[in-house]
Design a protein around this nucleic acid. Structure first.
Lengths: 115, 115
DNA sequence: CTTGACCCTGACAGCGCTGTCAGACCTTAG
DNA sequence: CTAAGGTCTGACAGCGCTGTCAGGGTCAAG
């Protein structure tokens, strides 16, 4: 399918679909015209990217994960480190939450002072 | 005092001190040489900015707050909205924490699936 | 054939800072 | 006087996307 249709199907903008390709997350074929030609599995990849993006991962991390989660069989794990990567990202997120929480509390103290 | 000394005293980089000025958070005088000439109260302002920055506020918000917190008397409140601004910022931060938390949980679910 | 919708590449902009570099002037100690 | 170190302005770069625009092909229907 062409890029416009994939965008419509997934809700990901055309701009971002091209960006995913640029960042090596996606490698669609090309028609003779030069138009990108996306397959069904490309669409699956895009949906995976969407999910992980919503989960707060950056494309760098997603790129690491993609080779692991693209197999049809979800139980087959070619990458020993899938879990490790996810856990690493979660730790990062925990740290970020902690920082934000500390900021929030500090702000709270200011507000109290303003009494 | 000159910019270098203020930077040394506060730990804020020279670059950022100039940036604060550019963003209208600071308005140091000038020596005849053209060098910036910071006063004691300028240093206080910088420390205020530091605190609020650590509290996660952006310069836009800090600029709003500065006129309120620069008075010597902390109980004097020329701005009725000091508290309102702080609360608004805290609400923003709460929302951000919620989003991040949701992402973290989603990641947790992925990790569980990976069993 | 023409029109309109779609696609291509490449590049610029913006977010909110922050570092760094270039070219040039000021100041201070030796 | 000279050299070193401090300062000035202005501009470019980078983070991680995301939108948008320009200039130019492609494809489909009428």
């Amino acid at each position: 399918m062409k890029i416009g249709e994939l965008a419509r199907r997934t809700g990901v903008s055309i701009r971002m679909l091209r960006y995913y390709e640029q960042e090596d997350l996606l490698a669609p074929g090309r028609q003779e015209s030069g138009y990108r030609d996306y397959s069904e599995s490309d669409e699956i990849v895009v949906r995976r990217i969407q999910m992980l993006t919503e989960a707060g991962l950056k494309l760098d991390a997603i790129r690491e994960l993609l080779p692991c989660i693209l197999t049809d069989d979800p139980s087959f794990q070619p990458c020993d480190n899938l879990r490790a990567i996810l856990q690493r990202e979660r730790r990062k997120m925990d740290a970020q939450i902690d920082r934000l929480q500390a900021s929030r509390d500090m702000l709270g103290r200011y507000i109290d002072q303003t009494g």
